[in-house]
Design a protein around this nucleic acid. Structure first.
Lengths: 122, 122
DNA sequence: TACCGGTACATAGCAACACTGAATACCAAA
DNA sequence: TTTGGTATTCAGTGTTGCTATGTACCGGTA
C-alpha cells in the first residue's frame, strides 16, 4: 500500500478513524500510530498522526492529560469529549452516505465484469 | 450535506466515483455533474468536476472526443481507456481496504453507543 | 434588436489535509 | 559513549475540492 490513492483517500477519513479509536479508550500519539499499524495502516507517518491530534485538540474535540512515561518523554493522552463524540457521529453519517453510494457504483459498474475480463485485460 | 467533512472525504474518492461513472459509458462534464446530483451528491460544484476531468485526461486515464451540441458549445466526451480501467481497479482495491477497516471500527466503537433508536435498528 | 436562461467548459485563488524529513527529548543497555 | 526504542513537534511540499468568475453557444421572448 502507501499508494497516492490511499494518501488522498485518507483525507477526511483519518480523522474519523482516530476519533473512533479514541472513542474506545484514551490514547497518546505514539500509541495511536502503533494501533493503526496493527490494524493494517502500515504506511501512516507518525508526523501525520501528531499533526492531526494538534488539530482536533485545537478544535476542542478532545481533552488532553500529560502523563509521565517510564521510557521517554511525557505522553500526551487524548480522550474524546462530548464535542468529539458529536463530531464522530457526524463522521459516521457522512461516511455512511458516501460509502453507500460508492458501493452502489461498485455493484453497478462491476456488473459486466466477472472473474477474468475478456477484452482489454489491462 | 455539503459539510466540511464531506469535502475532505471526497478527496481521493471523487476521482474513483467519476472513473466508475465513465466505466459504465462515456460522458461529458456537464452530464457527469448532473448524474452526480441525481445520485445524491448535490453539493459537488461544476468547477470541481471539470478540474478533475482535466487531471485524469492529463494522466492519460481517458480518451476525449469533441462532439457538437444542439444546445450549446461542443461537448468534450470522455471515455475510460485501458489505463483508466487499471486505475479504477486500483481504486476499488484501495477503497475496499479502507472501507473494511473503517466498518470494523464502526462496529467496534458503535457497540457501547446508543442513539435515539435501538441499536438493532436494522 | 436586446435580453434572459439553460447548456457547456475553463480557471485563478483559497483552504484543508497527509507526507517528507528533520529535530528534540528521555531513558536503558551495549 | 553510542545505539536504539520511546515520544513529541514542526517547516515545507503536493494534491485536492471549493468559490467565484468568465467565456461561449443557442432558443425564446419582449
Amino acid at each position: 500500500m502507501g499508494s497516492k490513492q490511499m494518501t488522498e483517500m485518507l483525507k477526511g477519513t483519518l480523522e474519523g478513524i482516530v476519533l473512533a479509536i479514541l472513542a474506545g479508550q484514551p490514547a497518546y500519539g505514539y500509541e495511536i500510530t502503533a494501533r493503526l499499524r496493527d490494524q493494517g495502516f502500515a504506511e501512516i507517518a507518525e508526523g501525520t498522526v501528531y499533526a492531526l491530534l494538534v488539530r482536533i485538540e485545537q478544535r476542542g474535540l478532545v481533552d488532553v492529560a500529560k502523563v509521565p512515561s517510564e521510557k521517554g518523554p511525557p505522553r500526551k493522552v487524548y480522550s474524546l469529549n462530548a464535542q468529539g463524540r458529536t463530531e464522530l457521529e457526524e463522521f459516521w453519517k457522512t461516511w455512511s452516505f458516501l460509502a453507500e453510494r460508492i458501493e452502489q457504483l461498485h455493484r453497478t459498474d462491476a456488473a459486466p465484469q466477472d472473474t477474468a475480463t475478456t477484452e482489454a485485460g489491462e
